[in-house]
Amino acid sequence: DLRKKIVDLHKSGSSLGAISKRLKVPRSSVQTIVRKYK
């Protein structure tokens, strides 16, 4: 699940930009998912 991957990467200390590059999703999507998770 993409959300879980993003949250896991964020927990392990990756920046939003790094996560978005790695998973090839827009940075804004990463930000939204991380914000919802918090």
Rank of each mutant, 00 (worst) to 15 (best):
K38P: 03
R35Q: 10
I33F: 01
S12P: 00
P26G: 06
K24Y: 05
R22T: 13
H10W: 15
R3M: 11
K21M: 08
K11T: 10
K24N: 13
Q31I: 13
V25F: 03
R27F: 14
K24G: 14
S14F: 15
S15E: 03
S20W: 00
L2Y: 08
I19G: 01
D1R: 13
R22L: 15
K38M: 13
L23Q: 00
G17I: 11
S14W: 15
L2P: 03
I33V: 13
R27Y: 14
L23D: 00
S15G: 09
S29N: 08
K36I: 09
K4G: 07
I33L: 05
K36M: 12
S14A: 15
G17R: 15
A18R: 07
R3D: 06
T32Y: 13
K24A: 08
S14E: 15
L2I: 12
S20D: 00
D8E: 14
P26C: 11
L23N: 00
A18Y: 11
S12A: 13
R35W: 06
S12M: 12
V7M: 13
R27I: 14
S29T: 15
S28M: 06
I33S: 04
L23G: 00
S15Y: 01
A18P: 02
V7T: 05
I33A: 08
D8K: 11
K11S: 07
P26F: 04
S29H: 14
V25K: 04
R27H: 06
A18N: 10
I6L: 01
D8H: 11
S28E: 08
L2Q: 06
H10F: 15
K11C: 13
V25Q: 04
Y37R: 04
R3A: 13
K5E: 07
K24R: 12
Q31N: 08
I33Y: 02
R22W: 09
K24S: 09
V7Y: 10
S12T: 10
R35Y: 06
Y37V: 05
T32G: 11
S29Q: 13
K4T: 10
R3N: 07
K4Q: 12
V25E: 02
Y37W: 12
K11W: 06
L2F: 08
L16V: 14
S12E: 09
P26T: 09
R22K: 13
V30A: 04
I33D: 01
T32D: 12
Q31M: 07
S20Q: 03
V25L: 10
Q31D: 07
K11G: 05
G17K: 13
K11D: 06
K24D: 07
K5V: 11
A18E: 14
L9M: 14
L16F: 09
R22G: 06
A18D: 11
D1H: 11
S12Q: 13
V30Y: 01
V25G: 01
K38I: 12
S12D: 08
S28K: 14
G13S: 02
L9V: 00
T32F: 11
T32S: 13
S29R: 15
R22F: 12
K21R: 14
S29D: 09
L16D: 05
L9E: 02
K38R: 10
K36D: 09
R3Q: 09
K4E: 08
R35N: 09
I33H: 05
V34K: 02
S28I: 08
K24P: 00
K21G: 05
H10I: 11
S20Y: 00
R3L: 11
L23R: 01
K11Q: 09
S28H: 10
S15N: 05
R35L: 07
S14L: 15
V25P: 00
H10P: 00
L9D: 02
S29Y: 15
D8M: 14
R27P: 05
K38Q: 11
K36R: 14
I33T: 06
K4Y: 08
T32K: 15
V25I: 14
I19D: 00
K21L: 07
I33R: 04
K4D: 09
K5R: 13
T32N: 13
D1K: 11
K21D: 06
A18Q: 13
I6M: 04
K4L: 08
L16P: 08
V25A: 04
S20V: 08
K36P: 00
I19L: 02
R3K: 10
L16A: 08
A18F: 11
L9I: 01
S29F: 15
Q31P: 03
K11A: 09
I6Y: 01
H10K: 04
S14I: 15
S12I: 07
S12V: 06
S28D: 07
P26E: 05
V7H: 06
L16E: 05
K38H: 15
I19P: 00
G17Q: 11
H10S: 04
K21I: 08
I19H: 01
R27M: 12
G17H: 15
K36S: 09
S28T: 10
S15M: 03
T32P: 03
D1Y: 14
D1T: 13
I6V: 10
K38L: 14
V34P: 01
Y37M: 08
V30M: 01
S29M: 15
S20K: 01
A18L: 08
Y37P: 02
I6F: 01
S29E: 12
I19A: 01
R27N: 04
K5A: 12
I19E: 00
L16S: 06
V25M: 08
Y37N: 04
S12Y: 07
V7D: 02
K5S: 08
K24V: 05
K4N: 09
I19W: 00
I33G: 02
K38T: 09
H10M: 11
R27L: 14
P26W: 06
S29I: 15
R27V: 11
K38F: 11
K21F: 05
P26Q: 07
K11F: 08
R35T: 07
I19R: 02
L16W: 05
V7K: 04
K11H: 07
R27S: 04
S14D: 07
K4V: 07
K4I: 08
S29V: 15
R3G: 07
R22H: 11
K4S: 09
L9P: 00
A18V: 08
K5T: 10
K24E: 05
K4A: 10
G13Y: 02
V25N: 03
S15V: 02
R22E: 13
G13N: 03
I33C: 06
A18K: 07
V30G: 03
I19F: 01
Q31G: 08
D1I: 13
I33Q: 03
D8L: 14
K38S: 09
D1S: 14
S20L: 03
G13V: 01
R22V: 12
L2M: 09
R35K: 11
R3I: 14
L16C: 11
V7P: 01
Y37T: 04
P26K: 10
K4M: 10
L16H: 06
G17Y: 12
D8P: 02
S15K: 04
R35P: 00
K38G: 10
I33M: 05
K38W: 11
R3V: 14
P26I: 05
P26A: 11
I33N: 03
D8G: 09
G13K: 04
K24Q: 10
V30E: 02
S28F: 08
K11L: 14
K5G: 04
H10L: 13
I33W: 02
S12L: 12
L2V: 08
R35A: 10
H10T: 04
L16Y: 12
G13F: 03
L9H: 03
L23F: 07
K24H: 11
I6D: 00
S15A: 05
G17M: 12
G17V: 10
V7S: 03
I19T: 01
V7L: 15
R22S: 11
S28L: 08
H10V: 09
K21A: 09
G17P: 05
Q31A: 14
D1Q: 12
K21W: 05
P26N: 08
G17F: 06
K5P: 01
Y37H: 06
V34E: 00
L2N: 05
K38Y: 14
I6P: 01
I6Q: 00
